[in-house]
Simulated assay, not measured.
Amino acid sequence: MDKGYQKEQFTCLSIKISIAKKYRKFCRSFGKSQSLTLLAMLDFFQVNEVSPNDRLGETISSLKHQMKRRFNAVIAIIRDIEKSQTKPTTIMLQQLFEQASGDSEEETFDFGTPELISESEELNYYRDNYFKIQSEHQAMCNDLELVLNSIKPVKGTFGSSFLKLEISKKEYQELKNRIENVYNHNSTEIG
């Protein structure tokens, strides 16, 4: 008996004998009763929104074969991209890296032998530099104080107030030269 349909009664359908034999044979191959096979067929047509009069075109096995051919075509395209684009690019990058690593190995720089000096000479060197920097700092502070003392506030007639620097062009030029001398003419002993 069919599960879920035990209490329902049977009814007769008028079907031609040749079609009934074909249907019964199909039901046996399907492994279900005639009622459940017919129900499964009706569900298939309703769910897939297909009419029994419509032809689906190709069979599933031919669709499977066509998909397999498409997959093989996609694989061929990917392999072609790998051969024509990816591998040559990889080879070129490897050659560039090999050349770059080879160049860095060839370049060596000799710093020479350092000259040894005594502790007192080293101490004198750093002490002299310290006093030199201190004097430059004091000179910069004096210049800044000169500039700050030369600034006068001016109230604008139509706009906002502003600050005016009251020094001569000669004093301005001297101040500018001293500042440039401090920042631009300090060089190391080597250069």
Rank of each mutant, 00 (worst) to 15 (best):
T113V: 08
Q66K: 03
F109G: 09
Q95P: 00
E122F: 10
I77C: 09
L63Y: 01
N142W: 11
D103H: 13
K83Y: 10
K83Q: 14
N149F: 01
E105L: 15
N124S: 07
I75K: 15
I77M: 10
E98W: 02
E119H: 05
E145P: 00
V74D: 14
S101F: 12
L63T: 00
N149Y: 02
K68T: 01
K83P: 00
N129I: 04
I81D: 12
S104K: 14
Q99D: 13
S104T: 13
E122N: 09
E119A: 11
Q138C: 09
S104R: 14
D128N: 10
M92L: 14
S104G: 09
A100L: 14
I78F: 11
A100S: 12
E98M: 10
L63K: 01
K64T: 02
I78V: 13
I81G: 06
Y130E: 04
M140A: 13
M67V: 03
E115I: 06
E145I: 09
T113M: 06
C141W: 11
F131K: 07
S101E: 13
Y130K: 03
I77D: 11
A139T: 03
L146A: 08
S101D: 13
S135Y: 04
G102W: 09
I78T: 10
E145T: 12
E98C: 07
E119G: 06
R70Y: 05
T90E: 13
R79I: 06
V74N: 14
I91V: 12
S118M: 02
V147W: 00
K68M: 02
F131V: 04
D80I: 04
N129R: 09
A76N: 04
Q95G: 04
E115Y: 01
E115W: 01
R79P: 00
N124H: 07
F131R: 08
Q95V: 08
D110K: 03
F111D: 07
A139Y: 01
E107D: 15
E122C: 09
F131G: 01
S84W: 09
G112D: 00
E119R: 07
Q99V: 07
G102P: 00
I133H: 02
E105N: 14
L116F: 07
T108I: 15
A73R: 12
Q95Y: 09
R79H: 11
Q138L: 12
H65R: 06
Y126H: 04
V74M: 15
S135G: 02
I81W: 11
L144C: 04
T113D: 08
Y125T: 02
H65K: 08
T90G: 12
I81L: 15
M67L: 10
T113Q: 06
D128Y: 09
